[in-house]
Design a protein around this nucleic acid. Structure first.
Lengths: 289, 289
DNA sequence: CAAGTTGTTCTCAGTATGAGTCTTTCTCAG
DNA sequence: CTGAGAAAGACTCATACTGAGAACAACTTG
């Protein structure tokens, strides 16, 4: 038996005898504020990266909680919501990041989660953070919002869905704005790409809206997440033609949009889990190769 | 500061003082043999689940390797391939599973990987396993291959992409065939669903084939993964019309298919990373809700 | 040689999409 | 009060993509 194998065997029965790996959850929580996509960030209260922005997260409680539960707990701590009252918030696993050097203190494997939330209260700092806030995602996305004509520096070379996590390097080349601590820039970029892809073929865009909502509000979600304007008429036709995407409440808005126009009809999320056929993002020729 | 917080702080600086969480990687390695999808499985050489089949995997080497590297290492160990020679094998992260009870010994978080490989040599047992083999996936999929008319017991209630990992419960209800150890049934089911979805919008089906290949062989990959027959003519038209999916070698097969027909033209994988527009699975109305 | 398979190309009808128009109902500025 | 501008929603039209099927040639096996 070679030495590596031997070590594994021992570790299997007494992991404490070896260098441990810490397990954390980090959450990319996205919400819409003033028509723009915002991400929940905390300011680190201690080293390393003291004073820098980071994604909310923390250690998984060994033997006491699952990863999903840990993520919900961390999200609740920073939003001030009761973990049980996270009701309409969509929370899904994003990927894991485990490069040995991603945290200077020790080998930390982080399981990242992605959350979609309707307008939430202002963030409050958890006890280990110096502050928490919803920040516009462009603050951390080089080249501003992800316009369709943009050169897309973030997702360069990454296939959607193949968020080849685990390497944890911090490559992002030509950076402009502020950075997130650790490899959280990469995690955020992966989360944004996942969000952009996910609203194509699932009705999750509705998770960003309080019910009931109008078709126009739903379109604003797509425009904010994709960073591109959509054709209002075609969007309207499409949303109503996909079975189960939205269902009418029969009501119409009490007041029209702030800039005029007729009172819009109101809808709530339908029972579809997948959009069939999907709503595809406009022109992504650059992404193809 | 509440007790949970306090514990976190301490753990942050001396994780050894607390119950550790072990981190493993498990690999769902898929390949095609005799037109059927097979998964690499190992027979456990010790408790728990001694003698049962499980996915290949093992502990991540703390401070010495990333998750990706660990997955590649584990895969190499069970296939007998040089880790560096894993060349044409596609390896991507699938998701993480971290329910505290998923392993009876201790809290183990497993990062699952998904591999697509062209015909590989027979498996060989790693030193900690009693055996290794490529097994037809239907052996572990209740109700056999995932036919289009099937009631789809595996993916029931799961949105593709929302492989909401982390819970690690072992729910799979009405089981027929053998089970995989731990929660590996669930991981395999998630891996299969990911594979089925992934070949829709990426050219990864080509990763199952040695180059050069014929359109008919590529179609056989889709049919095996989706478990449904496809219209040969339409498939042919589609594959050739998506830019960058395959590129012609200019050659034609030396021998025709084993059951007659003209010599087919040969192709290799093109340079596209995404299929645009995608090849959608036939009829998934059941999945929609 | 006959029957059966496969590779490849076509046709045709149905559906979905992008772009644009039009009408109606509002708000806001003057 | 009025006119400009914005938005909701319903239409039109040309194009693209899809599923189903047919046709035909090049092979196999019995």
């Amino acid at each position: 038996m070679d030495p590596d194998r031997e070590r594994e065997f021992l570790a299997e029965y007494d992991p404490r005898a070896f260098d441990p790996i810490a397990v954390t959850v980090d959450v990319v929580a996205l919400t819409l504020r003033e028509e723009r996509l915002h991400v929940l960030a905390v300011r680190r209260g201690g080293p390393p990266f003291e004073g820098e922005w980071a994604l909310p997260g923390g250690f998984v409680q060994a033997g006491r909680e699952s990863l999903d539960e840990g993520a919900a707990r961390e999200l609740a701590e920073e939003t001030g919501l009761d973990p049980a009252a996270l009701g309409r918030v969509h929370l899904e696993q994003l990927g894991s990041y485990g490069h040995p050097d991603r945290d200077p203190r020790m080998h930390v494997v982080s399981i990242a989660y992605l959350a979609f939330a309707p307008r939430l209260p202002d963030a409050r700092a958890g006890s280990d953070a110096a502050g928490a806030a919803w920040l516009p995602v462009e603050a951390f996305s080089p080249a501003g919002q992800p316009g369709p004509v943009r050169s897309r520096p973030i997702d360069q070379g990454r296939r959607p869905g193949a968020y080849g996590g685990g390497t944890g390097r911090r490559p992002l080349p030509d950076e402009d704005g502020p950075r997130l601590a650790f490899d959280h820039d990469r995690i955020l970029a992966d989360g944004l790409e996942r969000a952009r892809a996910k609203i194509e073929y699932t009705p999750l865009a509705t998770a960003f809206l309080p019910e009931p909502f109008t078709i126009g509000e739903l379109r604003a979600v797509y425009e904010a997440v994709w960073g591109a304007p959509l054709h209002a008429g075609n969007f309207h036709r499409k949303v109503l033609s996909v079975p189960g995407f939205v269902e009418s409440t029969g009501e119409t808005a009490t007041r029209p949009g702030s800039r005029g126009g007729p009172k819009a009809r109101l809808y709530r999320a339908g029972d579809a889990r997948l959009l069939h056929p999907p709503l595809l993002r406009p022109d992504r020729e650059d992404d193809v190769r």
